[in-house]
Design a protein around this nucleic acid. Structure first.
Length: 987
RNA sequence: GGCCCUUUGGCGGAAUUGGCAGACGCAACGGAUUCAAAAUCCGUCGCCCCUAAAGCGUGUGGGUUCGAGUCCCACAAGGGCCACCA
């Protein structure tokens, strides 16, 4: 091996750190330099260290950053640690060490591993979410949310103080349930929340009530919500952390129970979060995932009047109304109760033959008749005891109970039975539906189960409706007097219009997105900067009191009850203020909190006055936010949605300058484990020799007989800690077989890397064997950045040979006592043209993040160098210099070493200008064009690049191989695509 | 079940965006060097075929076009996300 990479890589890593080679300049120092903010998703520093998936994204952004620096950009490329979180706490509990200790150890290991890869981070900007100087500002941002409300008329966050002023000025009043409603004397304003009726003035409220009202309007508020309580972890989890009724971490069962929790009002931003996706250069698939997650659907709210047995005037008008409609009925006395439903298909209203309420729905008690009470109560009790998982166990089986009550369909005055069933969710829409069995699969299944009436009111546009089918698509309305024959879209519009006119319904937009459950019953998280009085009202602590530090506790284990561990920190817990005793909020924030804004702290990480300096923020977030953000798809919805939400709140409050945080985002693809080969003994019962098989996988015994398992061994190196015999696999007509024994069939597949499968590759091992440059090149050469691709240790050889070859060609081979001959000679013309094309192509490929093709181009150049070396020729110095600069972003250690030798010392090439290509050298004077006959390649013709069409066609007719195909035939058409090809169409 | 994506040699993947399919790397095969090996170098390498010509060839079937890996329609296989969201 001519190139001894380990000491040289270490040398340059030390050099870069000492010289702060990658320091980003603050706007004041940057002058006219253009800025570029290139960001990685910062890692959770787990105990198992870096995974080969990390270097993939990190190398991509590193190449991009290094390239931009050479292009003269002021590049911000930082790294930090998302270090709060459950695994650290779990580990701490298990080993009885403080999570701070394990976190510090893990961070040190991650930092070592990342620095070993030669990544060009500005280490002066490192952030750690568990550092009080960091989470001080996480708490500060929480206070911004806490002290704001969402104003739907302006569609933005406003300081809560503004709302207090409005209320004191009687611009709004407060409804009986604490919601804020428009003061009816003011026209043109909309309701903020809730219903009209029995409003009171702000001044009529007690202080307690005033606090309650404000609490209900804040962007951060508390609520009694049915949460996912996980006894195994001793905490509640967000819906996203529950998978199939079990905790994502640990797989413990999860049950629903009501608890007081902190919520963030992300639903208020649903529309903006959908709309502003259009501003972003993100993968379309990812935008689609966010849209689906937010789940915006348009439809209508429809009021069904309840019939409680006695005839109370069928078809009477709505007694209550909502919104700005029907102001003349505002004072009327309430008579019958209303069941309000949400539907996306108001055009099917004539087909609503029954109604279904969620078991938890508030009107169930009112509706239930004496005869049904026992059955209804039993069903409700059973539903309440069921976990979310049990409810979903079999979505096809529907269960439910008739309440005995009826309601009136407002469009035709028909009386329909009201049922309760757990397929209707309290948390979506109004918790009640109008069931249209003919046009909804679930309602259809339910109607079949309980023998309920089915009325078809939509038929397919291109055929007649069939008996007993459920047709859920759009079509044409039938059996619907008011909208007969209308297409679904028009029918919807007409029904909504009618409902609105009659005050029995209105247009409504509904979202799947729920408010964000923001509290956790854990120790290792940010404490809330909140005090609670004896009545449970919350108060923000002053900004000057931040950070509110986590108390030092010897015992931070879960209490085993929903009460969080912090409730055991007695000295910390109680606070006396103004003669009153307050209790600190003992919940902590979820792990998402720190990662929601870390990209802003990198901009100004040491600032003790503000979370980020406004001037610096404006500079680095200019142009729509972070210029390039690279990370895995696993964060497609949660992290990216939460961060966008916080950013928008900060934007509304004037703390940041761009409406979106990440202008351009790319997902790196998953790296799968090494290809596994599964060997099958065939029907003839031939034995599989021990040389080919190392391990018998008895669990998977397929129809062929014994299934055997082995791993392809590339070159005798150890894989997965085992030494494996070589198995050569060939493709035959029968499929894949082993070469040694063709009777053995082979199935090749690769799987996700996992500890349990034992196929995890540790970057430390690869760096030790081949060096960081080779690992970087290999990961980039595997395939397109976004693609999922299998790891193949065997293939690393190619990059190893490339790096070694470059060194041999430009420095020499000490072992063979051979020194490369670099001389001030002119580069041969053909090679020079190739070089200039490469300068252009490599630059374009880096900008397009097509690193695999850029590397192929570099390999080609090196192959040319190898040819010169092998022929004993001199290497032109200019070529060597340019080549080294092109190589620098990809293999920075080797490039620095080469540069130092070529230049005889001098500064690092990290900020040396990227080479310019000479446009004149990109075009050839002569072109070799393909000549096709009827679209098939038949020959080639060489012409001058500026030759005219007639000249080219004439030459093409006589080009070798062509005449045989056109002689004696009529040339119907002769096509010349300039500088591309010639095509003759013959009859 | 819904939405989205992918499919090119033995393998990873290229293809200037509708214009010479298979760049570059790995593996394999033949040779040189070597006492031998490693390393290195030269050559072959989609299928069919003794070879050549011809033919066939980008998951399958159809279409648009002078020309399709690329665009359109249908289907199949694999993967991802969501999943009783009215």
């Amino acid at each position: 091996m001519p190139y001894n990479f380990t000491p040289i890589e270490k040398k340059w890593q030390r050099y870069w750190l000492e010289h702060k080679s990658f320091r980003a300049l603050d706007p004041a120092e940057a002058g006219e330099m253009k800025k570029a903010y290139v960001l990685d998703m910062f890692p959770y520093p787990s105990g198992s260290g870096l995974h080969v998936g990390h270097p993939e994204g990190y190398t991509a952004t590193d190449i991009y950053s290094r390239y931009l620096r050479m292009k003269g950009f002021n590049v911000l490329h930082p790294m930090g640690w998302d270090a709060f979180g459950l695994p650290a706490e779990q580990y701490a509990i298990k080993t009885n060490t403080h999570p701070r200790e394990t976190t510090e150890t893990n961070i040190a290991n991650f930092r070592r591993q990342i620095q070993m890869l030669g990544l060009s981070y500005d280490w002066d900007r490192e952030v750690d979410t568990t550092d009080p100087e960091y989470y001080r500002w996480t708490q500060w941002i929480f206070l911004q949310l806490y002290n704001s409300y969402f104003d739907p008329t302006q569609r933005r966050a406003m300081p809560i103080g503004h709302l207090v002023n409005e209320l004191q000025n009687d611009n709004y009043k407060v409804g009986p349930d604490g919601s804020i409603v428009l003061n009816q004397t003011q026209e043109g304003l909309e309701v903020i929340a809730g219903e009209v009726g029995l409003e009171r003035r702000w001044s009529e409220l007690s202080v307690e009530e005033q606090r309650g009202v404000l609490g209900g309007q804040r962007l951060a508020y508390t609520d009694e919500v049915a949460v996912n309580w996980c006894g195994g972890l001793g905490t509640v989890l967000s819906n996203e952390e529950v998978i199939d009724g079990k905790s994502e971490v640990g797989g413990y069962p999860v049950e629903r129970r009501p608890m007081r929790q902190w919520m963030l009002r992300i639903t208020a931003y649903a529309d903006r979060l959908v709309e502003d996706l259009d501003l972003l250069q993100w993968p379309e698939s990812l935008k689609e995932m966010q849209r689906n997650w937010i789940g915006r659907s348009t439809g209508a709210e429809v009021d069904f009047e309840v019939e409680t047995g006695g005839d109370r005037g069928k078809g009477t008008e709505a007694q209550r109304h909502r919104g700005t409609e029907g102001e003349d009925r505002g004072g009327e006395e309430g008579g019958g109760e209303m069941i309000t439903v949400f539907t996306t298909r108001p055009d099917t209203l004539y087909g609503a033959t029954f109604m279904v309420l969620a078991p938890e729905h508030g009107l169930v008690g009112t509706l239930t008749t004496e005869g049904q009470r026992v059955a209804v109560e039993a069903y409700r009790a059973a539903a309440a005891g069921k976990s979310e998982r049990d409810r979903m166990v079999d979505a096809k089986t529907k269960s439910g109970v008739f309440t005995g009550g009826y309601a009136v369909n407002p469009i035709n005055g028909e009386k329909v039975p009201v049922w309760i069933a757990d397929y209707v969710l309290m948390g979506y829409g109004t918790g009640a539906i109008m069931a249209v069995p003919a046009h909804d699969e679930r309602d259809f299944a339910f109607a079949k189960q309980y023998g309920l009436k089915i009325v078809t009111v939509v038929k397919p546009a291109d055929r007649e409706a069939k008996e007993d089918e459920c047709f859920a698509d759009e079509g044409v309305a039938i059996n619907s007097p008011m909208i007969e024959g209308l297409a679904t879209a028009e029918a919807k519009a007409k029904v909504i219009e009618t409902l609105e006119r009659e005050g029995t319904g209105k247009r409504r937009i509904q979202y799947k997105l729920r408010d964000w459950l923001f509290s956790r019953q854990r120790y290792w998280g940010e404490p809330f900067p909140i005090l609670l009085d004896s009545a449970g009202n919350s108060y923000a602590i002053g900004e000057e009191e931040l950070p509110l530090r986590l108390p030092e506790m010897a015992d931070f284990k879960p209490t085993g009850t929903p009460e969080p561990p912090l409730s055991k920190a007695e000295d910390w817990l109680k606070v006396r203020r103004d003669g009153e005793t307050f209790t600190r909020e003992t919940n902590t924030m979820p792990q998402w909190a720190g990662s929601c804004w870390y990209y802003l702290r990198y901009i100004d990480p040491k600032n003790t006055e503000r979370f980020v300096d406004p001037e610096k923020e404006k500079y680095w977030m200019g142009g729509g936010g972070v210029d390039l953000y690279v990370g895995g798809v696993e964060h497609a919805v949660l992290h990216l949605l939460y961060a966008r939400f916080w950013h928008k709140v900060l934007f509304d409050l004037g703390h940041v300058s761009s409406p979106e945080p990440f202008a351009k985002l790319v997902n790196q693809g998953l790296i799968l484990g090494e290809m596994e080969y599964h060997f099958f003994e065939d029907e003839r019962g031939q034995a599989v020799s021990a040389a080919e098989v190392t391990d018998v996988d008895e669990e998977n015994s397929p129809e062929f007989g014994i299934r055997l398992f082995a791993t392809h061994k590339p070159t005798g190196r150890k894989i997965f800690g085992k030494r494996l015999e070589e198995v050569l696999v060939e493709k035959t007509k029968e499929g894949f077989v082993t070469r040694a024994n063709p009777a053995i069939r082979v199935d090749a597949r690769s799987f996700k890397m996992s500890k349990s499968r034992g196929n995890v590759v540790n970057p430390d091992d690869i760096v030790a064997d081949y060096g960081a440059d080779v690992l970087r090149l290999y990961e980039m050469y595997m395939g397109p950045l976004e693609a999922t691709k299998p790891w193949a240790t065997r293939d690393i050889t190619g990059m190893h040979r490339f790096i070694q070859g470059v060194y041999r060609n430009l420095v020499g081979d000490e072992e063979e006592n051979r020194v490369a001959k670099i001389a001030d000679v002119a580069t041969p013309d053909a090679l020079d043209r190739q070089l200039h094309r490469a300068i252009k192509k490599v630059a374009e490929d880096i900008e397009g993040l097509r690193f695999n093709v850029a590397i192929a181009e570099l390999i080609k150049l090196n192959n040319e160098l190898g040819r010169l070396t092998n022929d004993g020729k001199e290497i032109p110095r200019d070529f060597a210099r340019t080549f080294t600069l092109l190589l620098a972003p990809f293999a920075p250690h080797l490039a620095e070493e080469l540069w130092e030798r070529l230049e005889g010392g001098g500064p690092s090439l990290a900020r040396h200008a990227w080479p310019e290509f000479d446009a004149a050298k990109l075009v050839d004077s002569m072109l070799e064009l393909p000549v096709q006959v009827n679209g098939k390649l038949r020959g080639k013709v060489t012409v001058a690049a500026d030759a005219g069409e007639a000249e080219v066609l004439l030459a093409a007719r006589t080009a070798e191989g062509v005449p045989a195909w056109i002689e004696g035939k009529e040339v119907k058409k002769a096509l010349y695509v300039p500088k591309k090809l010639v095509n003759f169409v013959v009859g």
